[in-house]
Write a protein that binds this DNA or RNA. Structure first.
Length: 569
RNA sequence: CGGGGUGUAGCGCAGACUGGUAGCGCGUUUGGUUCGGGACCAAAAGGUCGCGGGUUCAAAUCCCGCCGCCCCGACCA
């Protein structure tokens, strides 16, 4: 492809609204253009790269035995009512009406559609297992679209769904997808970290996320410094810390703490470490208020809390409820004298002399002892894990990292198959329910994540597998006919081998072409100039190499082919 | 939705406080000189100053309302 015939509008400066390196570089390298918040047009070069990611995904899905389908993005409201997710996801969905005023949604995901399909088409154990997948545009009314393609309102996703006769069989399908994901990301040149994750609105009981480690990542994860344990902060557990018991003969004593509501304010005022305070939070679980206690220096993990209380939805109580339950305004809640169930983090199991809210305005209690002054209904691991916590598996210290979630595999179970009555007759003629799994890859996000993980001060560094063009050809002086002729011959031969070549045929100064080649990040650069041709050679250099290789003209094509084959094999 | 910021040419910005013919750099067009790491000279095209209202002889500038976009928090591939 000649640069003058395509459209790759490179920018010297990044648009002001681009924040992270990959977003800036996608804009600067002329891959995408913004239409509005979370909405992007793929320009020719960006699309070429995207198609290559899709191709890798397809090949690996097919290899894993998944069947490609294509489901409607536009879906009737009814199927969402049927799964019970219309309420759960309705704020995240784009909702529209057709001309008959029927409610429709733009699909944010496709469990409902695929399960409906399977419930109609699959009737026998002989038809199972089956895994279906599609690569399709998803729509989500994100609260805050961000970072270009990283979190967009419209994005391309590969979603797959497995259907099995049993939980054991589902494990096999799950593993097949897991393995395919490992291969996909590896082929895209990504280094990923697999972490245990929360299942969220998707439901199900088990999941793994594929994370690209990056400072700009929106997810926090912890990983053990010794064993293989790694988890999303939403799920991450920690071993109960060993704390020393402390005790006192003194009764709880009320201390006036006017206007001191936060842990920081109270600990500073009472001259106690935050750890010596107990943070009391009032939650509403399934309509009923409960008190949740955590050490003063920790935060509640609501996902863990919800799971601990039996998977019911929990939310922080509003101010009115807090006043009603504690008899005090927000900021002075404490466990002593509360008439509601009290759940506490396991870090508080060891009795310690603590300070708590006094359930009275502008007052706190000191010399509070659990067991003596209040009773905890049950202890759970309830706090958000953090750097320095002990690994739940082996007790070693854990460290915190940031990650970009590019893939997520779920063991769903029967949530959707039950809702859509997706069952089958087993060999004995008994009707059984299908066990499902679901598996997503953010295709557009993966593309950007590759850049986030691979760039330098000059621009993108594409892996050969998904570079829009594997080779860029630069002729410093396009006025030199011989250079152009040799360049065109080499390009023609490379393209005949199925290699994508971008020929910078612009009438620009050499410096401009070199800068743009680096910015676009094409993996191999061939320079054909009067100077090198005088020795019968052309210059070939990888994007990451400093040294130029001077290759005889007749060997150039083979030399380049070998680099590409070497990396793709 | 809460908090903060911002909107002036395709991109990056100045002008606003103190109202008076809308500017700079990059990019684009034309001509010329240049030609291995974002050249130089000359000429030119390109703007409803986010939108609506108000104040004023006069508004990019002051006032009111709305909208877009970006950042920090709750959602997710």
């Amino acid at each position: 492809m000649r640069l003058t015939q395509t459209l790759i509008p490179t920018l010297r400066e990044a648009p002001q609204d681009a924040e992270i390196p990959s977003h800036k570089l996608m804009m600067r390298a002329g891959l995408i253009m913004k239409l509005g918040g979370g909405l992007y047009t793929f320009l020719p070069a960006g699309l070429k790269a995207l198609r290559k990611v899709e191709k890798i995904v397809r090949e690996e899905m097919d290899r894993a035995g998944a069947l490609e389908v294509l489901m409607p993005a536009l879906q009737p409201r009814e199927i969402w009512e049927q799964s019970g997710r219309y309420t759960v996801l309705k704020d995240a969905m784009f909702k529209i009406k057709d001309r008959q005023q029927r409610d429709m949604v733009l699909g944010p995901t496709h469990e409902e559609v695929i399960t409906d399909l399977v419930s109609r088409q699959i009737n026998s154990y002989r038809q199972l297992p089956k895994t279906f997948y599609q690569i399709q545009t998803k729509f989500r009314d994100e609260i805050r679209p961000r970072f270009g393609l990283m979190r967009a309102k419209e994005f391309s996703m590969k979603d797959a769904y497995s259907f099995d006769v049993s939980w054991e069989a589902a494990d096999v399908s799950y593993q097949a997808m897991y393995d395919a994901y490992v291969r996909i990301f590896k082929r895209c040149g990504l280094r990923t970290k697999v972490v245990e994750a929360d299942t969220g609105a998707m439901g199900g009981n088990f999941s793994h996320e594929f994370m690209v480690l990056a400072d700009s990542g929106e997810d926090g994860i912890v990983e053990c410094e010794s064993c293989s344990y790694a988890a999303n902060l939403e799920r991450a557990e920690r071993m109960t810390p060993k704390t020393e018991t402390t005790t006192t003969d003194k009764a709880p004593e009320i201390v006036a703490t006017p206007g001191k509501r936060t842990i920081d304010e109270v600990s500073a005022f009472l001259k106690l470490a935050p750890h010596d305070l107990i943070k009391t939070l009032i939650y509403v679980a399934d309509g009923k208020p409960v008190a949740v206690l955590v050490p003063g220096d920790r935060d509640v993990n609501e996902h863990k809390l919800a799971r601990a209380l039996g998977g019911i939805p929990v939310q922080l109580a509003d101010d009115a409820t807090i006043v009603q339950v504690t008899g005090a305004p927000v900021g002075f809640a404490g466990p002593v004298g509360l008439k509601i169930p009290i759940y506490a983090d396991s870090g508080l199991k060891t009795p310690r002399v603590s300070a708590t809210g006094a359930n009275a305005a502008d007052a706190h209690l000191v010399n509070v002892l659990s067991g003596r002054d209040f009773q905890v209904a049950e202890y759970f691991d309830l706090v958000i894990a953090r750097e320095g916590d002990s690994c739940p598996r082996c007790g070693t210290r854990m460290r915190e990292k940031r990650g970009i979630e590019v893939g997520h595999v779920f063991k769903l179970g029967t949530k959707y198959s039950k809702a859509f009555d997706a069952g089958f007759l087993d060999a004995a003629g008994n009707r059984q329910i299908i066990v499902m799994g679901c598996y997503g890859i953010g295709v557009t996000r993966t593309l950007q994540a590759v850049i986030e993980q691979s760039y330098d001060e000059n621009g993108i560094i594409w892996p050969i597998s998904i570079a829009p063009y594997q080779v860029s050809v630069v002729v410093p002086n396009t006025g030199h006919a011989e250079s152009v002729k040799v360049a065109e011959e080499i390009i023609q031969k490379l393209e005949a081998q199925g290699i994508d070549v971008l020929f910078d045929d612009r009438d620009e100064r050499p410096g401009v072409k070199f800068k743009d080649a680096d910015l676009m990040g094409l993996p191999i650069r061939a320079v054909i100039s009067e100077r090198s041709l005088a020795e019968g050679k052309v210059e070939v250099k990888r994007r990451t190499e400093k040294e130029k290789n001077m290759i005889p003209v007749s060997d150039a094509v083979t030399f380049i082919e070998n680099i590409i084959r070497g990396e793709l094999s």
